[in-house]
Design a protein around this nucleic acid. Structure first.
Length: 440
RNA sequence: CGGAGUGUGGCUCAGCCUGGUAGAGCACCUCGUUCGGGACGAGGGGGUCGCAGGUUCAAAUCCUGCCACUCCGACCA
């Protein structure tokens, strides 16, 4: 992509409404635009990152055996009356009337709807286990939205729902998602720690929050320091093997880890000197087992081995991709701007033409751009007529992992400078080597 | 929902107390000189001062109401 033809509204000055670093950087980097309190438009650069996050979430859901579908954002109030949550959910739920005065709502979550879909088609225990998920916009009318995407009212959520015949099956379904979440966050460049959690209005009694540690995190968390060293399961993990999967979960739940709501100061103190880690965290995922809380009132049953109908055991599993975009920035930035992990970077490389209009730099940049694009490297070519300093500032701000500096000085020796945004390493090399480096 | 604030060109803000020709920096447009860490000169465009009433000869400024947004607290992917 040529910057001259892209839509990237960089802000040099910090918008006054932005309080936390991820919000500031996203506004400055032209990733998002606030349209109302807690409601944001994703601009092209922001959308690219969001889509990369979603792609990874999707891959890991699929790997763990979940199946994607897509449910609507608007729902009928009738469904929610069946579960009893239409009254129970409170003002956080945005209620709407259509032209026929029918009660509708903008979905804050989808337990009712997925249960309705399930019960419409599934009759037999032989169709289990089943895990269905979608990635869809949610609306929760927060009393006080803040921190940009971190606590918006409208947000993107991956929500998965598992259906099993009994608790044992549901526990395995829970473990699948547990491990999928560990892998998902690791691939996003984040170290997540599962913590015992309250299950809140979703209901249920087995629940973990996945927390990433960040200085600007909104909640206080406590855990054993050893969690920082735990090994995340590789891509070859066998999601079908009940015992091995349980072993992974057992290990990842063996040490102390709790948010402030569930914190046990006495147990934490027993960890020993230097072992307890007290920090701030961001909740990026939340998983629940809630049994028959919805299947019973909504009559989502299957026929079991004995020919008897019984309500299915369910769980739900949420990840907020839009919040993750902010969380990744919180975890990875410096004074100059964002430092994207390669897995979610909006572009992999950025070419900086240090002398726009130069008889040597222009052709060299074009050559690089063509070579990289031809090999499928997502490349942003800064071809605007700006001072080098301004281009450096932009490149650092938007955090593209690899910067290729093409200037007359080094080009005289047939070289360009390749700079890594994450560690600041720079290296002079011939053009061909730069292309090779980025396609390796 | 309680408390505290803010609304003036695209952005950051001054002007308001003490009413009297709407300002600055950045950004934008034109021309020129520049080009290895946010350039310089010259010229230029752009704002019914959040909205609606009121007071006044005269309102960005004073008064009333409303709206939007932000921050602190109670709640949350």
């Amino acid at each position: 992509m040529r910057l001259s033809r892209y839509f990237l509204p960089i802000l040099r000055e910090v918008p006054k409404e932005a309080e936390i670093v991820s919000h500031r950087l996203m506004l400055r980097a032209g990733m998002i635009r606030q349209e109302a309190a807690g409601i944001y438009a994703f601009l092209p650069l922001g959308l690219r990152v969001l889509q990369k996050v979603c792609a990874i979430v999707r891959e890991e859901q699929d790997r763990a055996g979940a199946i994607e579908l897509l449910m609507p954002t608007l729902q009928s109030a009738e469904l929610w009356r069946e579960s009893g949550r239409y009254e129970a959910y409170g003002k956080e739920m945005l209620r709407i009337k259509d032209r026929h005065e029918r009660d509708m709502l903008y979905g804050p979550t989808n337990e009712e709807m997925i249960t309705e879909i399930f019960r419409a088609y599934v009759r037999s225990y032989k169709d289990l286990p089943l895990n269905l998920y979608h990635i869809q916009w949610k609306f929760r009318d927060e009393v006080r939205p803040r921190f940009g995407l971190m606590r918006g009212r409208e947000f993107l959520m991956k929500d998965a729902y598992s259906f099993d015949l009994d608790f044992a099956g549901a526990k395995h379904a829970y473990n699948r998602m547990f491990v999928a979440y560990l892998r998902t966050f690791a691939r996003l460049g984040l170290r997540s720690i599962p913590m015992v959690a309250e299950s809140g209005p979703i209901g249920g009694n087995l629940s973990h929050e996945f927390i990433i540690l960040a200085e600007t995190g909104e909640s206080e968390v406590f855990c054993d320091r050893d969690y920082l060293e735990f090994e995340v399961p590789g891509p070859d993990v066998d999601f079908e093997h009940i015992g091995r999967l349980q072993a992974v979960v057992d290990k990842w739940t063996s040490l102390y880890a709790a948010t402030s709501e569930k914190h046990d100061a006495a147990a934490f103190a027993k960890l020993g000197p230097g072992q307890g880690l007290s920090a701030r965290g961001i909740e990026v995922g939340h998983i629940f087992y809630f049994g028959t809380k919805y299947s019973e009132p909504m009559k989502a049953t299957v026929t079991n081995h004995e020919g008897v109908d019984q309500p299915v055991h369910m769980g739900s599993y949420g990840i907020g991709p839009s919040r993750l975009v902010a969380a990744i920035i919180e975890a990875s930035h410096d004074d100059a701007g964002i430092k994207w992990p390669e897995a979610v970077a909006p572009f992999k490389a950025m070419i900086l033409n240090l002398k726009q209009g130069g008889t040597d730099t222009d052709p060299a940049c074009e050559q690089l751009y063509a070579a990289l694009s031809g090999k499928g490297v997502e490349t942003l070519y800064h071809d605007l007529d700006e001072r080098p300093g301004s281009k450096f500032a932009t490149a650092d701000l938007i955090g593209i992992p690899w910067q290729i500096l093409v200037g007359p000085r080094s080009l005289a020796e047939g070289k360009v400078e390749v700079k890594n945004r994450a560690d600041g390493q720079r290296e002079l090399m011939p053009l061909a080597d730069a292309v090779a480096r980025l396609t390796a």
